[in-house]
Amino acid sequence: MAHSWRKLLLGDFTLKRFIRSFLFIYTCFAVYVYIFSDSMIFLPPESSYEDSPEILKLLTPDQEYISALHLPHRDATYTLLYIHGNAEDLGDIRPLLDQLHTLNVNIFAYDYRGYGTSEGRPSERNAYVDVKTAYQYLRDTLNVPAENIIVFGRSVGGGSALYLAVHKPVGGIILESTFTQAFRVVVPFPLLPFDKFRNLDRIKRVSAPVLIIHGTADETIPIAHGKKLFEAAPEPKLAFWVEGATHNDVPWVDWDAYQNKLQKFVDLLESERNSLYLETGLSQSSR
């Protein structure tokens, strides 16, 4: 009797039926992920701050305002374009920005759409538009030379940082706790024919020096992601594997070592710049 009911409800098992059912389920799954993946990746918290005269408003090309913060330093050569991680906003990261400011760099940070007091909804596409909006503000309004911009992406912010570095000239790239591509954080093999934030592909195409930072105890984005990004990055590059650090405490586990590594990276940028100037001067003098 039970067999008869199972046959009536499910039909006879055949390989063709199995393959057809599998393809149907897989297609439904792929369509669902494609439509809702942005809402699964971006998790904006309730704003931790309110607008004030300190908060800048940058207008995106599609007419939405995103919030930004500029902390100038009178002795700075470089400007750190800081792109924060998920589930945090400018108010949450302000203590870190203040600490980074002590390293004699200008700080410029912004909130993705839907984060903090920024308008709109976050998505991968909008994240790319937002970072280019912040970059153009640095170049056009603050008159920061491209070679003086160090783009710093943390976690999901690394995707925006690498996108910018591929499409615009920058002086250097810092990636902290960043994944190779979004879906690989959940499944370590290509389950779908598409993905979000293809960082591993993009890092191979950058032309600026790279610093990769990752905590050895990161359970959110395992350190294997950081090591793969470092292996794929062209020279010159530096790595900093922070022993015992998890996903959200990398700078605070050993601040002295952290700032020393950032300073070493700035020294690398200066060395590369001096070498370029020397090569350019020799080339011109030989004409």
Rank of each mutant, 00 (worst) to 15 (best):
R113W: 13
K57M: 12
Y32L: 12
L23K: 08
S37G: 03
V31I: 15
M40C: 04
F22P: 01
P53W: 11
T102Q: 15
D51S: 08
T117E: 11
T117V: 15
I107D: 00
Y32R: 07
L80D: 00
Y82V: 00
G114C: 10
I25R: 15
P45R: 14
L56K: 10
H70Q: 01
N104F: 11
Y49W: 10
Y32C: 10
V31Q: 05
E119H: 09
Q63M: 09
H101V: 02
S39K: 11
Y82M: 01
T117F: 03
N106R: 08
P44C: 12
A30W: 06
L58D: 04
I55H: 08
Y26Q: 08
I25L: 15
R113C: 01
T117W: 03
D92I: 12
S37I: 13
G91Q: 12
D51W: 01
I25W: 13
L103K: 01
T27Q: 12
E54C: 03
I107L: 01
Y115I: 08
F22T: 02
P45Q: 08
L81R: 00
T77C: 05
A76Y: 00
S48E: 05
Y26W: 15
P95V: 04
L100Q: 06
Q63V: 09
F42G: 00
L58R: 02
L23N: 10
I107T: 00
L69Y: 09
Y82I: 00
Y82W: 10
T77W: 09
Y78I: 01
P44H: 06
F36L: 05
N86P: 03
L103V: 07
S37Q: 15
E88T: 07
E119D: 14
P44I: 10
I41N: 12
A30F: 06
P95C: 07
L71A: 02
F108Q: 00
Q63G: 01
I107Y: 00
F42W: 12
I25T: 10
Q63R: 13
G114H: 06
D111F: 03
Y26H: 13
N104T: 10
I35E: 05
Y34R: 15
T27Y: 15
D98E: 15
Y110L: 13
G85K: 05
P72E: 14
L81P: 03
T27I: 13
L59D: 12
I41L: 13
N106L: 05
Y65G: 00
I35V: 14
D92Q: 11
Q63C: 04
F22L: 13
H70M: 03
C28H: 10
P95Q: 08
G120T: 07
Y82F: 15
D98F: 11
A109I: 09
Y34L: 14
K57C: 05
E64F: 07
Y65L: 09
H70S: 06
H73L: 00
S48M: 04
L81K: 01
S118Q: 11
Y49M: 08
